[in-house]
Amino acid sequence: MAILVIAEHDNQSIKAATLNTVTAAAAIGGDIHVLVAGQGCEGACNAAAKLAGVAKVLCAAAPHYEAQLAENVAALVVANAPGYSHILAPATSYGKNVMPRVAALLDVAQISDIVAVEAADTFVRPIYAGNAMATVKSADAVKAITVRTTAFEAAAEGGSAAVENLAAGADLGLSKLVGRELTKSERPELGAAKIIVSGGRGLGSGENYHALLEPLADKLGAALGASRAAVDAGFVPNDYQVGQTGKIVAPQVYLAVGISGAIQHLAGMKDSKVIVAINKDPEAPIFQVADYGLVADLFAAVPELTAALS
């Protein structure tokens, strides 16, 4: 049994999401091959070859793979699919774009966004925005899968796989890249941030919110969020709001400052990997979900935390 992992990369290097996907492949079990489709992608290939557990790296280099648009990449994957029992990609905007195309061309179902591997044909995936977990079994010969990256550890380095060149397919000429505009703002966007510093009504005012949380967020490279109470109180605009009626986020770290943790707020951030709460009320519901809770006056604790991170 061999498993093909479609790498997400920028030609020079492998994106972190690929590392989690390799770990998911290892959980299924079998020889793991990583496909790097790109142009001038030796750097990415070499990085993939160093991952522990990777048996082989397949490198397909051609100008029409440079932008890694779905049409050509999917065709390449399908052409090289024979022999693989599973094809995996990260459930990122890249993997979600490519993989269903692959599945349809292979006439197999896709299993989206898996968070656990129960057996080689059985997986757990969230449905209804994570409010229910479905265990699904695939009857197809090839399992096309996207992997929720936060559910699997990153694969470590330590491998030395061979890099094998793959013949490129023809350019389908269906689509072309006009441009990419990566967000350059120092502050990552709430929906995409790895770390979020979020403030609640405990901050008392908009001035306090900015004075206390911005330096901390700067230190952490974090996005800024807020509870509905803070938005309602006018500390920050609507688009800062995390929660049922705001944005649903799942960062690596969610730092809740002066947020009591109303259920509407929890509904928007409970899938965060690590939740940290700073609140002076030891009874605040936020502590029921926090991995690390600090009962303290935030006006002292937050500056101290900011300083400690220097």
Partner: peptide, 17 residues
């Protein structure tokens, strides 16, 4: 239960704007 986790189960919703 507290009020807010109760209200949650009423499925209530209003456009804020």
């Amino acid at each position: 239960f507290d009020r807010l986790s109760s209200v949650f189960l009423s499925n209530t919703n209003h456009e804020e704007e």
